[in-house]
Simulated scan of single mutants.
Amino acid sequence: MKSLKRLLGSTFAAFYFIFPMGIVYLLLIFTPLMFYSDVSAIRSSGFAGPNTSISLIAVAGLITGISLLVPALRRVYDVFPWLFSFIKIFFLSFVILNLGIAILNYGYEVNNPTRHVLFYILMVVFVLIGRLALSYYFWKKPVNIGEEEEHFYER
């Protein structure tokens, strides 16, 4: 019975990491790559783009949080020890960049060139401060593959 439960847990974990987490991985990888094209599309069109930043952050955070809280799903972090650090770094970058896009979108909701420039500057300052804070955090608490998961599991 115990082996059947373990087999079902492993099967569920494999499916979970293929479908929902696969989408999250793609979001985490492609958001930094697409950030500049999103900003240039908003600036060149003069109109706000789709306001999906908060929704993307919420869905990616929920799916990632479930993978960290359910013991059967955490086994993948034992198989791939680098994955926990990857998610930690890229998710924080994902949040910073999506909030930057949300700030820019908010500025372009009204057709006013002064407001556009102001919110563009606010977005740049926010992204720079966010990235500096992220760098400072990882300078103080370096990513140690294999050790972080153990401390996370103990909580």
Rank of each mutant, 00 (worst) to 15 (best):
Met1Trp: 13
Met1Gln: 14
Lys2Asn: 14
Ser3Pro: 06
Ser3His: 15
Leu4Asn: 07
Leu4Lys: 13
Lys5Glu: 12
Arg6Asn: 15
Leu8Tyr: 07
Gly9His: 03
Phe17Thr: 05
Ile18Leu: 10
Pro20Val: 08
Gly22Thr: 12
Leu27Val: 14
Leu28Ala: 10
Ile29Pro: 00
Ile29Gln: 02
Pro32Trp: 11
Pro32Gln: 09
Pro32Asn: 09
Pro32Ile: 11
Met34Tyr: 11
Met34Ser: 11
Met34Leu: 09
Phe35Met: 03
Ser37Trp: 12
Ser37Phe: 10
Asp38Leu: 11
Ile42Thr: 15
Ile42Met: 04
Arg43Asp: 08
Gly46Asn: 01
Phe47Pro: 00
Ala48Tyr: 06
Asn51Thr: 12
Thr52Trp: 07
Ser55Asn: 08
Ser55His: 08
Leu56Pro: 02
Leu56Arg: 11
Ala58Met: 10
Ala60Ser: 14
Gly61Asn: 10
Thr64His: 03
Ile66Asp: 03
Ile66Arg: 04
Ser67His: 02
Val70Arg: 01
Val70Gln: 04
Val70Gly: 00
Ala72Asn: 07
Leu73Thr: 06
Leu73Ser: 04
Leu73Met: 12
Arg74Ser: 06
Arg75Cys: 12
Tyr77Lys: 05
Asp78Arg: 11
Asp78Tyr: 07
Pro81Lys: 00
Phe84Ile: 03
Ser85Arg: 05
Ser85Ile: 13
Phe86Trp: 10
Ile87His: 12
Ile87Met: 05
Ile87Thr: 07
Ile87Asn: 04
Lys88Arg: 11
Phe90Met: 14
Phe91Glu: 02
Phe91Trp: 12
Phe91Leu: 08
Ser93Glu: 05
Phe94Arg: 03
Ile96Glu: 00
Ile96Thr: 02
Leu97Glu: 01
Asn98Tyr: 02
Ile101His: 00
Ile101Gln: 01
Ile103Asp: 01
Asn105Pro: 01
Tyr106Thr: 15
Glu109Ser: 15
Glu109Lys: 14
Asn111Val: 11
Asn111Trp: 13
Pro113Gln: 06
His116Ser: 01
His116Ile: 04
His116Thr: 02
Phe119Asp: 00
Phe119Ala: 06
Ile121Trp: 03
Met123Gln: 10
Val124Tyr: 01
Val125Asn: 05
Phe126Arg: 10
Val127Ser: 01
Ala133Glu: 09
Phe138Pro: 11
Trp139Pro: 08
Lys140Ser: 15
Lys140Thr: 04
Lys141Met: 10
Lys141Glu: 08
Pro142Gly: 06
Val143Asp: 15
Ile145Pro: 08
Gly146Asn: 03
Gly146Ile: 02
Glu148Met: 14
Glu148Pro: 08
Glu149Ile: 14
His151Ala: 14
Phe152Leu: 06
Glu154Ala: 13
